[in-house]
Each structure stands twice: as structure tokens, then as C-alpha cells.
Computed example of a mutant assay.
Amino acid sequence: MSGAPAWVPPGPALLFCPADRPERYAKAAARADVVIVDLEDAVAPAKRAAARDALRSSELDPERTIVRVNPVDTSDHAADLEAFTATGYRCVMLAKAESAAQVTDLYSATGAAVLALVETPLGVVRAEEIASAPGCAGLMWGAEDLLAAMGGSTSRFSVAEEGGPRVAGEYRDVPRHARTRVALAAAAFGRWAVDSVHLDIADVDGQRAEALDAVAQGYVGTACIHPSQVAVVREAYAPDDDEVAWARKVLAAAEHNQGVFQLDGRMVDGPVFRQAESTMRRAAAATEVTTPRA
């Protein structure tokens, strides 16, 4: 991963936790694979100073913690960075990232892996530039801020059309474009990608379908806004027994074959081999996150 720190999410379910609610930190860490301690949207402006104090005093596992800081052009950004650098955390999420320079400057200031949150029109059209920046470890995208910045009203269809293209709960075209562009930009520059939150907490089927689709597109994780979403996301990202068995068979056969070969009547080449490796990484992550943590 050229130009990026080595921090990688250890599992697929990343749970937001308001930074001004320190009593929730440990609970979130116990439930999710990664806690995103949020100094931005989850905290009212009047409570951000207290939130930064709580962050400084926190003792979460640095391998499983991300801190979201306010955008570069806000009055809270510098104070957020001061609080972050007083901790031992190794990954910082930059809200409303819009340029490679912002990412590189943040990396230079903190030495931490930067997760660039692409959630504005300018950020989306510069997704490739942002992904290429030294210090960028991963990309995430956000639907609601993107639509709000465009003067839109909602990122998803709310009414289904019988026999038509609209399905209630599915993304509209612009968010779908942003989601795809972020995944492509991350892959092009060897970064990992995190899928956006599913705001309808009660829509378990929609959350599951979206997480399964994220896996198919190469996302390494999905952000959650409620603890109940964690299990759904983990289940979606974990390969089933048949997938794992096939992946093991492919990798074992590849040790004795060079180039293209056939296995059980199917052609196996470089892309299939890499897919098998990805399946085994997801299986390993699923095993790790089910192990109880202190």
C-alpha cells in the first residue's frame, strides 16, 4: 500500500459512538469490530470541548479505534487534532475530505492513517486524487451530506414502482455513482474502502442486502449507527462454508500449478486466485471478531 500507513480495520462492522458519551465507549468496543469515536456530527457544537476531553482520557484499543475529526475549514478542526494527537490512536477519519492536500497535511500533522470521508460533490469528483494522497489508508463515502450539499432532499427512493426501476430503500443515481466511484478509487490506489451507513435501523433486510452488495464490490467494512446493525453486517461479510472450502481448494491447487489451470471443471487464473485470497481474509476476520475480547 504505497504511501499509506499500515492500519487496516480488523473486522467489517464499524460502529459510530458520540465522543461526548464516554460511558458508551467500552460498550461500543465490546459490540463492534471498530469504534468510530465521533467528534463531528454526533456532537453538538456546545459539547465538543467536553467531547475532546473525554477522548483524551479514553483508553480504547488503538487497533480497533478510529476518531472522526471535523472538516479542515471549520473552527473545531485544529482543536480536534490537538486532542487526537494526545491519544495513542492510529487512524483518523477526516470528515468532508475534498483534496489530496488535506489528507497529506493531516497525515503529516498526526502521523496516523487517514480514512478520508468523501461526502461532498467536490470530494466525490476528486475521489481518485484523494485516494492517491500519501497518508490515505482508506476511503469512506457518505450519502446524506452529499445530497444536502447538492440541495437534494433524500438519497434513497421512498416509493416502489410496480414493474419500474424504483425500489423503496434503494439509492438514487447520484449516491450510487458516489459509492461506485469511491470503491474504484480505493482499489485503484491500493486503499481499503468502507461503505456508508444505513439510516433505517429497522430495515434489517435492506441492511443485509446492502452489506452483501458491498462485499461483492470489494468493500472491507460497513459503518453502523446502531449496535443492532453489527451482527447483520458481520454475517453478510463472513463467507459461508462452501465459499471457504472452494477458496482453500483453489489456493492449495495453485501451489502446484502455474498460470491458468482447471479445477473441478472451472478455469482458475489470477483474478480467481485473488478472489480466493479475499475470501480467506474475510473468513479470518470473521473468526477473529467472534473471539471474546477483554
Rank of each mutant, 00 (worst) to 15 (best):
A183N: 11
G111H: 11
P134T: 02
E170M: 07
R282E: 02
R48M: 09
R179L: 14
I225W: 04
A86R: 04
G265C: 05
P175L: 05
I66H: 02
R31N: 03
A283G: 01
R21K: 14
G218H: 00
V250G: 02
D264N: 13
D61T: 10
R281E: 04
M150S: 08
A209P: 02
A294F: 07
P175E: 08
E129A: 15
R172P: 09
G142F: 11
P9M: 15
T180H: 14
V272P: 00
D241W: 03
G11Y: 08
V103M: 09
L94I: 13
W7D: 14
A51L: 02
A49P: 00
E243C: 06
D53K: 13
E40C: 15
A193H: 14
V268M: 02
D264S: 11
E277R: 08
A294Y: 03
V159C: 03
S153I: 15
A238E: 06
K27T: 02
A6Q: 08
H177E: 08
I66V: 12
G135K: 09
A116C: 11
A95L: 12
A223T: 08
R248P: 03
M1A: 12
W192H: 15
T104W: 06
S132P: 02
A42T: 15
G142R: 12
D61N: 14
T291W: 10
G169Y: 09
A253L: 01
V244S: 13
E128Q: 14
T291I: 15
R56Q: 12
A30R: 08
R90D: 13
P271Q: 07
V159L: 10
M150R: 00
A216Q: 04
L14P: 06
